[in-house]
Write a protein that binds this DNA or RNA. Structure first.
Lengths: 184, 184
DNA sequence: ATATATTGCGCAATTT
DNA sequence: CAAATTGCGCAATATA
């Protein structure tokens, strides 16, 4: 049976043709104070694609997949070596790994790889967390500045009105030569 | 042997007993604050501080885990039933479940709970994803509006200058009665 | 005390 | 091939 991850891959592939590419973490400098980060905001980094709001949140393996949990206490991502999906209906890249490796999970090589990936994963997630927080902060900052600007506009507008009024009075006073134009 | 998750719990308990508070840290999640720093490997998200960028992202439990999975393919977070912490030093609510459940992972009850949690997790993550996207979008919108406002301010300022200039000329022209005040 | 919501973590499939 | 991402389930917590 195909794992859920593979299913999502389908959607991903299917959809990826739609979203060009993005990701260009210009970060370089991890420090990247909020200000500078504010310049090159990434509208998105990825996956704006997947959602489709399927509000059911039904388990992926339930209700449509057998999920015949192998032995005893090992649910999770098991049953990978035995039984694969050779269905001819699926996209080639989705079908079974075809007796790929015998890394056997015991191989020190396997552990090494896992460990490295785990590290990478932590790093990546850390990065993501930081990115998210920075975006939030940026939004807050922008909101503040926005308010500030709106206020400033209010001031200027009022001042402008005052001057216009004043000027019109002068015009009245000065009578005849009035061009009546105060706009720029 | 104890799973990494339990390790963190231990550390957490251990540390929390130092801080006085049992659990319910006033703000934020304890899991990280302490554990991460205790292990000195998470730049973490919390402090926007992040300075020691070169951190190692060292594995939490590697190098001490045998991971001799019970059967064949089930590594991961196994072995939970055996070994509990009955330390009398800990706050009662922190001590081991005291032979609480024998949910044994086989119990249909266990599966039920797991399934429910899985659903909750998916839901929660979906929500988070949406929130993040919205924040990003909001930041973009704010940025746009900001620009718009800045422009507006530029216009107003210029117009104001023009009027002021004009007015000053009128003053000159009208001579003596000038109050000289154009500010609001 | 129970149910749901969050969150860090490791796994595996994919991407880059 | 190595590192980065991403969806997923688990378990510990946090909340309600």
């Amino acid at each position: 049976m195909m794992s859920d991850s593979r299913v999502s891959s389908v959607i991903q592939e299917w959809v990826s043709s739609y979203q060009g590419q993005s990701h260009s973490s210009p970060s370089g400098n991890p420090q990247m104070d909020l200000l500078s980060y504010a310049q090159g905001l990434r509208p998105d980094d990825r996956g704006v694609t997947e959602q489709m709001m399927g509000l059911s949140y039904m388990p992926y393996s339930t209700s449509c997949l057998s999920n015949t949990s192998n032995t005893a206490a090992s649910a999770h991502h098991e049953s990978h070596s035995p039984q694969q999906d050779y269905s001819p209906f699926l996209h080639p890249s989705l079908r079974a790994p075809l007796a790929k490796r015998s890394i056997s999970k015991d191989s020190p090589e396997y552990r090494l790889r896992r460990e490295r990936n785990n590290i990478a994963v932590r790093k990546s997630r850390d990065k993501a967390r930081r990115r998210i927080m920075m975006t939030q902060q940026r939004a807050l900052q922008l909101q503040d500045e926005n308010q500030r600007l709106q206020l400033r506009i209010g001031q200027l507008t009022q001042e402008l009105d005052t001057l216009k009024h004043l000027l019109s009075q002068r015009h009245m006073q000065g009578a005849e030569e009035g061009t009546g134009d105060t706009s720029i």
